[in-house]
Design a protein around this nucleic acid. Sequence first.
DNA 1: CCAAAAGTGTTTTCTCTACACCCATGT
DNA 2: ACATGGGTGTAGAGAAAACACTTTTGG
Lengths: 237, 237
Amino acid sequence: MSQRDNVYQRIPRHLVAVDCIIFSYDLVKKVLDLLLIKRDFEPAIGKWSLPGGFVREDEDMEDAARRILYNLTGLKDVFLEQSYTYGNVTRDTGARVISTSYFALIKHQEINDEVKGKHGAHWSAVSEIPDLIFDHNEMVARALNELRCQVRIKPVGFELLPETFTLVQFQDLYEAIYHRIMDKRNFRRKILAMNLLEKLNEKDKVNSKRGAFYYRFIPEKYSEFTRNGFYFDLDVN
Amino acid sequence: MSQRDNVYQRIPRHLVAVDCIIFSYDLVKKVLDLLLIKRDFEPAIGKWSLPGGFVREDEDMEDAARRILYNLTGLKDVFLEQSYTYGNVTRDTGARVISTSYFALIKHQEINDEVKGKHGAHWSAVSEIPDLIFDHNEMVARALNELRCQVRIKPVGFELLPETFTLVQFQDLYEAIYHRIMDKRNFRRKILAMNLLEKLNEKDKVNSKRGAFYYRFIPEKYSEFTRNGFYFDLDVN
DNA sequence: CCAAAAGTGTTTTCTCTACACCCATGT
DNA sequence: ACATGGGTGTAGAGAAAACACTTTTGG
């Protein structure tokens, strides 16, 4: 403990953890996935849980979340955002633990399956999430809600897709996030009107004979976008 | 320390605090205010600061925020919402303190000035916030942004007004929150179309000879509102 | 009677929504 | 030639925005 801590010596201290809500999108099954682990220590060992861990003494809280994320997926530079802090005395049955949840968006195909397997992590469709320990189901619900809000304001959807993707895939993603079907023509008109996408010359021929054009997100365009206080709002009705 | 804590004995513990961003609306000056205090302990004693305090051992985090709020204002049952958790190692120059900020909305006239005075608390217009300690200016900025978002989705504005208020006052409040003037006719049409307000027979004669009708918020109407997934969206353009 | 604030409608523009058929290609 | 998924346009309804004058009343 460093010298400067003297001032606060008599104050009670707390266990502080972070929990990660790791979303990904399965292009094939067309579902939004969540990465869950089997908890490997007591209490509640063997139960499904969000990946999490304690914040170290000289570690920024966000760094703690990134560390956990890295250990589980092998990924750095991931989209990560703080969600909410759960601070009830009895929320963890093992001890009083204050936990801040973070939600991450990763690309399904980028994950290192070897690393993932080592920790007993599994993808679970958000529509079929099992009972999780403590208040983790609540954490997921809140994060999912935040994801739905964010996706309307910022183009975070691109974090869940490969570099290049078709408009059909893009729409499928939105339909998975909102659990709702959208009108193809309206969706395309709106998304293209935002001028955030560049049409490429290659086609994806996996899903149809005709093939669908690939598009690419243009981050530079997005800067203009936010500078002008733009609103990334797709019809969700 | 209770028995159940044994499991986690070797984990490092942290100082955890809450800071309160207490908004209020000054009907006369027509500005959004923030309650600030002069910090009364080291480090940074004497500097402007958000009111805050450490989370006790057997205290829910939200309760800690309510305790601080109560000590400063004498108010219970206040609108209070968690904003964000600041977890950088060096954010507090005295020690590593993790702090969660909460924002509160209180009615200007309900505050107990005696209690407030005792703690050296002062109102400051949000447009003229002084330099605050640590990352408190950032906390305010984030909370203000959240307030602006919330106010579009939920009718939280009513938390800042007296029981009865005129439409002029209501619009003034919105203009103060958004720092923007709005069209009187459009504003009134929209707000009345929501059916959340009951027109009373009394008039406020303070600000005009003709007098302006008082209105009252009807919470029951609001329940219908949210059940149907309604959107409380005033034009902010 | 006049100053000062409250209250009130209409028109135009834009955005949202609903909707159905042709296109390209591999088999 | 046909089955499969990809791609396109338009008309109607509803919401948002712009805009200026009349009303009330205390002094």
